[in-house]
Nucleic acid binder design. Structure first.
Length: 362
DNA sequence: AAAACGGGGAC
DNA sequence: GTCCCAGTTTT
């Protein structure tokens, strides 16, 4: 099928067909009741690489805490991270905060109203700029997200590897061509994504009830499972985290993660990372600042082991709880500070740490 | 161009 | 286990 050469019937019927499908199948979602760019922006950042079902409660939470961009600009980054806790990709929350302050203080509280200027904001890439530009301002610019890749690859039978730059250009060009035949660009963009999420799903698309069945290249050639083509990801990195959980009275020692690493600006315990699993805490080689501290404490209970799987690394963590005398004369090493359990609850933490605290200190 | 960046849900 | 989710930034 040569979809690249000029206009054909499918290219003109595609958008209207999806828009019609959308009117009957669209879900009732909170961010679909507004054209306020702040609400649209917030919803789009939350939904990056995140399922609607997972993101929706976070959207409600954020809108409730920060009804306007000025409210968000007034908040501390730490509080945004705390609200974001559990959603992952925490740079989204940090960029959210940065952009809220920029819009409030440099742009008089008004979001950029077009694709090109939206693209300049931190955390807003090509997809999100197109989403906000079309949903909030009606600009005729196509969104190309995971749903769109899947729908277009199948309907138009495109077998390019969607992780490559050339393929991204191919899909963007096609989407741009298709949105020209749409009635309302915002509705078309919503429709194609909703269609991908509900009808043209990754594993078992509902081809029997599909309005594009007889036009769909993948259906007609039996390639629904083969499209889109996507290169396999590299194997995940194995990491071994040995956490020393210092405890004294009703306080525990935490530190903020500041390195260019996973969970930046979140809080965890004193961490000794090793390049293989350690049989016991005796095998850990303690850095100088910790020697005296550990010598003064005693290990309580048995080590707690857990595994946290991220998209790009598998973290095997062991927690050693070390009880220190109430009036320890040895100061905590730089970075570590004492927090009550209540204070710790208010700090943003990786799920790994939150789970541990809930189970053993909750 | 490739890697880094979370966590959860569906199969 | 595998795949993928309304992607962006850094290397």
């Amino acid at each position: 099928m040569n979809w690249q050469s000029g206009f054909n019937a499918l290219e003109t019927t595609f958008a209207p067909t999806l828009e019609r499908w959308y009117e009957h199948h669209k879900r009732d979602l909170p961010w679909r009741h507004t054209r306020d760019p702040y609400c649209i922006w917030l919803s789009e950042i939350i939904l990056q690489q995140t399922r609607v079902a997972q993101g929706k409660p976070y959207y409600e939470r954020f809108i409730n805490a920060y009804p306007t961009v000025a409210d968000m600009a007034r908040a501390e980054e730490r509080d945004l991270l705390r609200l974001w806790q559990g959603l992952g990709y925490y740079s989204r929350a940090r960029n959210l905060h940065q952009t809220a302050r920029y819009v409030t203080h440099e742009l008089s509280g008004k979001f950029p109203d077009n694709f090109r200027d939206l693209l300049k904001m931190k955390g807003i890439g090509v997809y999100t700029a197109a989403a906000i530009a079309s949903f909030a301002f009606g600009e005729r610019v196509p969104v190309v997200d995971g749903n769109v890749y899947r729908v277009l690859a199948r309907v138009f039978g495109i077998d390019e590897d969607i992780t490559t730059t050339t393929a991204k250009k191919t899909f963007a060009r096609l989407a741009d061509q298709l949105i020209q035949a749409a009635g309302d660009p915002a509705t078309f963009n919503q429709a194609i994504m909703e269609f991908g999420a509900i009808q043209c799903t990754p594993l078992s698309p509902d081809c029997l009830l599909c309005p594009l069945q007889q036009q769909c290249n993948a259906y007609l050639t039996g390639r629904q499972q083969r499209l889109p083509v996507k290169a396999r990801k590299a194997a995940v990195r194995e990491r071994f985290f040995n956490y020393l959980v210092f405890k004294s009275g009703d306080k525990i020692a935490l530190r903020e993660r500041t390195a260019r690493d996973v969970w930046q600006n979140l809080y965890d315990f004193c961490l000794l990372e090793t390049d293989e699993v350690q049989a016991s805490w005796r095998e850990l080689t303690l850095p100088e600042p910790l020697v005296a501290l550990v010598a003064e404490g005693k290990l309580v209970g048995s080590p707690v082991q857990t595994v946290q799987l991220l998209s790009h690394q598998r973290i095997r963590a062991v927690f050693y709880t070390i009880e220190l005398p109430l009036q320890s004369i040895v100061p905590l090493p730089v970075g570590l500070d004492w927090y009550t359990i209540e204070e710790a609850g208010q700090l943003p933490k990786p799920v790994l740490v939150t789970n541990y605290l809930e189970k053993w200190f909750g």
